Simulated scan of single mutants.
Amino acid sequence: MGTVRIRYWAGAKAAAGTALEEVQADTPRQALEDARRRRGDAGFDRVLAASSLLIDGRAAHDAELDGPVEGVVELEVLPPFAGG
């Protein structure tokens, strides 16, 4: 088990009520599920479902969320946003 440092950006930060949290977990998916369970908020769930995820600065595909966490892993939650 390692530490997943979840960093929330923009609307995800607002939905989470924090910019950063650390979760002890075996996988990044487990860390996200723990964050969901603790909040129990449908709005937070919707933001997570619509967000892109980065693991250690690289785009995370679904299978990568089940990879083992060793040491500290940075998981970034980026909700959809417009801009230019």
Results as ranks from 00 to 15, higher is better:
2 G>E: 02
31 A>P: 12
14 A>C: 03
70 E>Q: 08
73 V>W: 03
38 R>M: 01
75 L>W: 09
78 L>Y: 15
32 L>P: 06
30 Q>M: 05
61 H>R: 13
66 D>M: 14
65 L>P: 04
77 V>G: 04
16 A>Y: 08
67 G>H: 10
83 G>A: 07
50 A>P: 00
35 A>R: 02
16 A>F: 04
65 L>V: 02
67 G>L: 07
36 R>A: 00
4 V>P: 07
80 P>G: 11
67 G>Y: 04
50 A>V: 00
63 A>R: 13
56 D>P: 11
55 I>S: 06
80 P>R: 05
55 I>C: 04
27 T>A: 00
63 A>E: 06
42 A>P: 10
8 Y>I: 06
6 I>T: 06
69 V>L: 07
64 E>A: 14
78 L>E: 04
53 L>R: 15
78 L>N: 10
13 K>A: 08
82 A>Q: 02
34 D>H: 11
34 D>G: 06
76 E>L: 12
28 P>V: 05
56 D>M: 12
42 A>Q: 13
3 T>M: 09
53 L>D: 11
9 W>F: 15
35 A>G: 04
47 V>M: 13
45 D>Y: 10
27 T>S: 07
5 R>V: 01
70 E>S: 13
70 E>W: 01
17 G>C: 02
84 G>H: 12
61 H>K: 07
45 D>A: 15
58 R>K: 12
18 T>I: 09
22 E>N: 14
45 D>V: 08
9 W>R: 04
1 M>V: 08
14 A>P: 01
73 V>S: 01
11 G>K: 12
65 L>W: 04
36 R>Q: 07
28 P>M: 02
